[in-house]
Design a protein around this nucleic acid. Structure first.
Lengths: 341, 341
DNA sequence: CTGTTAGCGCTTTCAT
DNA sequence: ATGAAAGCGCTAACAG
C-alpha cells in the first residue's frame, strides 16, 4: 500500500526543517551550507522524495523548460518530410543541450491557447496552415522565433530563396530551352495542376513565390519565356503529388528540356519516373531540386540542387529563442551542382 | 501600455459574479444556464480573457493533455530514422484527434523526473538507451505503454520478430548458401564489426536477438550453418554504419550469396553498394530487409522485406494509453516478397 | 543561514 | 443556479 506522493511540506516536516530550506536545497545551493544541503538531499533520496513537483513549479515560476515547435502542417506530414525532420533534428539537439523539452505543435490546430500559458516560447517553422495561429502568435507575450516566413516585429530566420532559385536555374538553363516548373503551394488547390490563370496564393509572403521569381529572372536573362501552362502547382512536397505532375510533364509534347523543382522530394520522383521511362537524364531532360536532402545525393544520377542546411536552421532558431535574439537573419545556402543538369 | 494578463479573478470582479461561475462557464456548461454562460463567454471575449490559465489548471486538476513519447535514442536520431518517424506519425495523428499534445523525450536523457509530474502518460518506443529511464518508468504512477520492448506489468505492443525474421529468411535461403547477417545492437560496441565471440547484449529482451533467432532457425532448417564471423553488428540502423559493413561483406572471399539485414535502411545501403560495384541483385547476391519503409519499394530492384506497419503501431500505442488498456498486444506483420531475393 | 508567510491562478466541495 | 473558501505544491520576499 503505497502512500500518496510526498510533497515538499511533508518532507520539511519529517526532516524538521522549514519548507524553504528543502526548496533551497534543490533550487538554490548557495542559500544553505553545503553540508546541510547534502544531508537533506540524501535524506530525500532515502525517503523517496525526488524533488519539487514540476507542475507546481511551472505555476509558481512561470517557466517550464518546454519549447513548442509549431509546424506548418500536421505533425504527421511534417515528420515524414525530410526537410522538416532535419529542421526538427537541429532544434531538438540544441534544446536538449540546454535542458529544454520539445513539444511538437501542429500548424493545423485550432489555437495555441492550449499551451501558451506554460511553454517558454515558440519556434514557428513555416507559415502555419491555419493562419489564425499567426495572429495568436503575433500577439502572444511569449517569445516567438519564425523560420521560412515572417511575423512583423518577431525575430526570423530565412534563406534568400529568390537568389537560390535564380542561381540553380541559371546553371540549368540554356537559350532556347523549353522549361517547366514544379512549384509548391502556388495557388489554392488541394491537387496537382497547372496554374494557368488561377489566383496566386500569398504572393508577397510565400517562399514559393520568391523561388518562382528567381526561376523567372534566370529564364528571362536567357531570353526564355515560361508561360503559366508550364508551371505546375503541387499542394505539398510529397512524392504522391509529384507523381501526377511527372506523368503530365513527361507525356507532354514537346517535352520540356528542363524541369525546375521547388523541392528535392518532387524532383526525385520526377527523376525516377523519367528513368523508368528510359528518358536519359541529363541528356534528354535536365532536373533541378531544392533543399539538399540526403537522398538527393544517393539518387543516380545525383540531383543538382540548392542546399539549405535545415538542421543548422533549426539549431539557429533554437539558439535565437534561448538567447532572446531580436533581429531577422538570412542564412546562406549552397549550390550543389551534381549530375542532373 | 498593455496591462498585465487577466486572471479569472479579475474577470469575476469585473463581471460582478463569483470566480466559480466564470470557471464553470469555461469548464462545466451544465453548472449554469445557457444564457448566462453565453453572456459570460462573450464578455470575456470582449475584454480579452481567453480562458483559465493552463499552468494553474495543470496543477489544480493534475492533468495537462500532454503525452510524452520517450524515444529509444536522441530525438535527433529518431526523427531521422524512417521507421521511428512513421511511428511518431501514427502517435501524433491519434493524439491530435483526441486533443492531446505530444512531447518528444530523448531516450538518452538523464531522467524523466523533469516531466513526470505534469504529463498524462508515457509512450515508450524501444528500450531507451539510458536504461535508468526504464526503472523510473516502471515505478512511475503515470500510465506507460511500451512498444518494441517490455516492462513488467505495463501494457506493451510488439510484433513477433522471431517469426518475421524466420519467414523472410526461409524465402531467401537455399540449401548450400553462404549467408551473412547484418544485425543491430547485438553487442556492446559503438562501431560496425563482426560479433565473433564478444558477449551478446540483452539477449533475452532485445528484438534484434529475436530476429537473429528467426534467421538461424530458418538457416538450420536448410542445413545452413552461420558462424559468428558472418554476423555483423551495427550500432544503429544508419546508412553510415551499413556502408562499412557492406564494404566488408562485398569484399570478402568467398562472397556470401545472401545477406539478411535487420533493417531496410541498412539493406538499402548494401543494395546500393552492390549495384555500384556491378554486382547483380538478386542473381549474384540476395538481400532481405526488415521494417517495410517507403524507400524499400522505390529501390531498383525493389527490396524484399518484412513489413511492420509502424504508423499503426504508433496509433495503437496512443490508443492503448488513452483508453487505459492494460494488456500486451502482438501486432501482425506482412511478408513483402519483392525483387531482391 | 534559516523560517514564516503570502500568493502563483485555478477548481471544487459545500452552503445558500 | 450561484458564491465563499480551502487548498493543489511550490517559491521568494522578508524578517530574524
Amino acid at each position: 500500500m503505497k502512500k500518496t506522493k510526498l510533497t515538499l511540506k511533508d518532507v520539511a516536516l519529517q526532516l524538521g526543517v522549514s519548507t524553504a530550506t528543502i526548496s533551497n536545497a534543490f533550487n538554490r545551493p548557495d542559500q544553505l551550507s553545503k553540508a546541510k544541503r547534502e544531508e537533506i538531499l540524501s535524506q530525500c533520496q532515502k525517503i523517496g522524495y525526488t524533488g519539487p513537483n514540476k507542475a507546481a513549479q511551472i505555476l509558481r515560476k512561470g517557466t517550464s523548460n518546454i519549447v513548442a515547435l509549431v509546424l506548418a502542417d500536421s505533425i504527421s506530414y511534417m515528420v515524414r518530410d525530410p526537410v522538416a525532420s532535419k529542421f526538427i533534428q537541429g532544434v531538438s539537439e540544441k534544446l536538449q543541450k540546454h535542458g529544454k523539452h520539445l513539444l511538437l505543435y501542429a500548424g493545423d490546430s485550432e489555437t495555441i491557447l492550449d499551451v501558451v500559458d506554460f511553454v517558454d516560447g515558440f519556434i514557428c517553422y513555416g507559415a502555419p496552415r491555419n493562419t489564425h495561429l499567426i495572429s495568436e502568435l503575433s500577439t502572444s507575450s511569449k517569445p516567438v522565433v519564425t523560420v521560412d516566413f515572417d511575423i512583423e516585429g518577431k525575430p526570423a530566420i530565412n534563406i534568400d530563396n529568390e537568389k537560390g532559385a535564380y542561381e540553380v536555374a541559371s546553371h540549368a538553363l540554356k537559350t532556347g530551352d523549353n522549361v517547366a516548373i514544379f512549384g509548391l503551394r502556388l495557388i489554392d488547390s488541394p491537387s496537382t495542376c497547372r496554374i494557368y490563370d488561377n489566383p496566386l496564393l500569398d504572393v508577397e509572403s510565400s517562399i514559393s513565390h520568391r523561388r518562382l521569381d528567381g526561376y523567372i529572372r534566370a529564364a528571362q536573362e536567357k531570353g526564355i519565356d515560361i508561360s503559366n501552362e508550364k508551371i505546375w502547382h503541387l499542394p505539398e512536397s510529397d512524392r504522391h503529388f509529384a507523381r501526377q505532375a511527372a506523368k503530365e510533364v513527361l507525356g507532354s509534347v514537346p517535352r520540356p528540356d528542363v524541369v525546375l523543382c521547388m523541392s528535392d522530394v518532387i524532383a526525385l520522383e520526377l527523376l525516377q519516373q523519367a528513368t523508368d521511362l528510359g528518358i536519359k537524364v541529363p541528356e534528354e531532360l535536365r532536373i533541378t531540386g531544392f533543399d539538399g536532402i540526403d537522398e538527393a545525393d544517393r539518387s543516380r544520377p545525383r540531383l543538382t540542387t540548392v542546399c539549405q542546411a535545415s538542421d543548422t536552421k533549426g539549431a539557429e532558431a533554437a539558439k535565437a529563442l534561448l538567447n532572446g535574439v531580436e533581429d531577422k537573419r538570412i542564412l546562406p545556402f549552397e549550390l550543389n551542382i551534381r549530375e542532373t543538369v
